[in-house]
């Protein structure tokens, strides 16, 4: 029989960017707060904290989700990927490279979330077209309005992959 854990802080093991990380947080902690707080991964941003903006987008088992609406404890046993896990040994991921090249940001606050959404799209659909990219980031608000360049960057990254 599965037993209840909490409500006070419990030990969790989260697989983040390929590494198992231990944290001690209560079940009410969102994945976002856990990433940004105990795990010190502040690349994922908090904007609305209620699933209305997409700035907190991370990948769980390859799919983009809102980490503000995900409980950390519910992410146990799953693969969590954040913006910090994308570039390896200082080499940018092709999507990150395309974002730089196409000026696909202004203030940059939504950028980590946008990048994660596009990365996920291109994994599932390497030959993604403009409409696919536009739809893939439709759950990531950009108040600066960098959308035309975000879409262009996504399309360029897909073309490079092809």
């Amino acid at each position: 029989m599965t037993s209840l854990r909490g409500p006070n802080a419990v030990d969790l093991t989260l697989n983040v960017n390929g590494h198992d990380r231990s944290v001690h947080v209560p079940p009410r902690f969102s994945l976002l707060d856990t990433l940004r707080g105990p795990l010190g991964l502040t690349g994922t941003k908090l904007v609305c904290d209620e699933g209305d903006c997409g700035a907190c987008t991370v990948l769980i088992d390859d799919r983009p989700v809102y980490s503000c609406l995900t409980l950390a404890i519910a992410a146990e046993g799953r693969r969590v990927e954040t913006i910090e896990g994308l570039s390896q040994d200082g080499t940018l991921h092709p999507v990150q490279e395309a974002f730089v090249e196409h000026d696909a940001y202004q203030c940059g606050f939504c950028t980590p979330g946008q990048v994660m959404s596009v990365v996920s799209l291109l994994r599932a659909k390497p030959d993604a077209r403009e409409d696919d990219v536009r739809r893939a980031v439709s759950g990531n608000l950009c108040r600066c309005g960098a959308y035309p360049n975000i879409v262009a960057a996504g399309v360029a990254a897909a073309k490079k992959k092809r």
Binding site: R5, G6, P7, N8, P27, R28, A74
Partner: peptide, 19 residues
């Protein structure tokens, strides 16, 4: 958000008992 406990059962029967 106030404190709450959490469980992730593997079987429906267990879940129903916990509810």
């Amino acid at each position: 958000m106030s404190l709450f406990a959490y469980a992730r059962p593997k079987a429906l029967g267990e879940a129903l008992k916990l509810l």
